[in-house]
Nucleic acid binder design. Structure first.
Lengths: 140, 140
DNA sequence: TGCGAATCTGCACGTCTTGAAGATTGGCAC
DNA sequence: GTGCCAATCTTCAAGACGTGCAGATTCGCA
């Protein structure tokens, strides 16, 4: 996802308005590696801007996702998560605390795949599930 | 997933009761390659057993999943899907009609993976998204 | 055949997300 | 700087999916 300044320009260029709510969310998401949910982002945003509505958070995140500035992820943790990292990457999720981290996978061209007959595949996502270091240690 | 007859024995062996509702669901899921949701299975079951409740369908499918007789899949299509195929395999989903098919992937040992630092990975799932042959043809 | 525990049904609730309507405001024209 | 209009924000309600609960029913064993 681009910088808040770049997004401000991009929004105006598209005829979209730049509101304080949007700017705040630009800042909160830029470089964010926590893969937050709309709800958790709403919590954080509320601290800096009491009165901001959850609906606006959903709306803005979905707009950014539509514009390709961030990816929305359904990792099976109940709520959709948002990732400003739009590089080609994948994710690992802790089954206990739902912590999410980015994972980079290479060599997937060498995979041998059966069953895609006729499907026009546009996206491939690899999801790793398990326990994060902290939770793995706790469960010993 | 094992045959209805085998499941009947297995349930009794575990002290679980074998009801007509469960037996119907055993039959409907055995060899089922449609990856149905609880709701769609409920529709089918209702035809053969009017009055069966959606709650029972959820309950039974979850029990079977817990017993390892089938897998529950969150493929991002809104509702969880159930798959009696418990082989090591993956899935491709049509983004338009939500059709799901099994995909077999081999050679994943050769993948080079960065970012799993410390995670104890217990499961890896690969999800392909795109258009099924029918939808791809329709959109030309 | 009868009993007790497991199961089924029906309903309500919880979570996540979106739709709709009215109030507010950004951004351009003047 | 001022005013206008469309875009946006907030609030509320509803939709989709899944589960908890309570009472009625039924399986499976003695």
């Amino acid at each position: 996802m681009r910088s808040p300044a770049d997004l401000t320009e991009a929004f105006r260029a598209h005829g979209l308005k730049v509101t304080p709510q949007r700017q705040l969310l630009f800042r909160l998401m830029h470089g964010n590696e926590c893969h937050p949910t709309a709800e958790s982002l709403f919590q954080t945003a509320s601290e800096q801007m009491p009165g901001i509505s959850l609906r606006t958070v959903y709306q803005t995140l979905n707009d950014l996702a539509t514009m390709g500035e961030l990816r929305s992820l359904d990792l099976g943790t109940g709520a959709v998560r948002f990732d400003p990292n739009i590089d080609d990457h994948h994710h690992v999720v802790c089954d206990r605390c739902s912590d999410v981290r980015d994972v980079y996978v290479s060599g997937s061209d060498a995979l041998s795949i059966q069953g895609l007959d006729g499907f026009a595949v546009s996206n491939t996502s690899i999801l790793f599930n398990g326990l994060c270091p902290r939770c793995a240690a706790d469960s010993e």
